[in-house]
Amino acid sequence: MSIILNNISKSYDKVKALDDISFEVKPGELFGLIGPDGAGKTTLFRILTTLLIQDEGSASVAGYDVLKHYKDIRNHVGYMPGRFSLYQDLTVEENLNFFATIFGTTIAENYELIKDIYVQIEPFKNRRAGKLSGGMKQKLALCCALIHKPKVLFLDEPTTGVDPVSRKEFWEMLKRLQQKDITILVSTPYMDEAELCDRIALISDGKILEINTPEAIRTLFPKKIYKVRTSQIYQLIMDLRSYPETHSAYPFGEYLHFTPKTASFVAEDLEKYLIQREHRDIEVMETVATIEDTFMDLSRANELVNR
């Protein structure tokens, strides 16, 4: 196993940031940690990269224990934190050289690994890192995290605040890196990116809600789900809220996703109700759950348990 976590917990004062987290990541796997801001993702990354010590539990990365062999871990992992943390007043090339030297290697030695990404920023190699665009900064940070040919790569929200085009390119880069035998643990708040991982862990309030392949997670959704649309979206939300059969109703793109309370629900009843409420252009269709549906259902259930 590339990464092993056994019952990891961590608190800051009274806040439990991580609560009894256990999972494993296989060698060469692209593993996604999916959850919103404040779920505990960064704390988990900091423990695995030996920057923070857990209160309870044990963890190992690339075969090294995070407490006993932290120095070995630092030599064998690459870490790209959520906040841009390269030297703003060094140039692109100077930053890369700096990180290569620290790890006792050279750009030339591992050029093959970063080539794909580096060629995109090479035209700007004499520009200071602080003057790069967001997308280019991100590519430089990835190059710096890879320059010592790590066995495991940790990427903490690499695509937050990044536009859909750059996000897509970034994920294509990750897929290519995976081909080069690097294990990747990546976190993201974007549920659509979860689909691109081999396996994902859904995390919320410091707890793991579920771990599985994206496909298996989608099929976990326990209820029927319908997409509903009328010409009056806001009124529709309000009317579904007061509909007795509603378990949940959330906006999902141009539709609302509606789940009924009972298995005996029939779409015609809802249509009748909406006609009665003077909706027009009514569409009610059964659909399949997305990862986001599952995430919301699980985190709702989790909240109910905690109350």
Binding site: P36, D37, G161, P189, M191, Y250
Partner: peptide, 10 residues
């Protein structure tokens, strides 16, 4: 809504 959880986002 950047980084906000899916329920709160909605």
């Amino acid at each position: 809504t950047g980084g906000v959880d899916p329920i709160t986002r909605r």
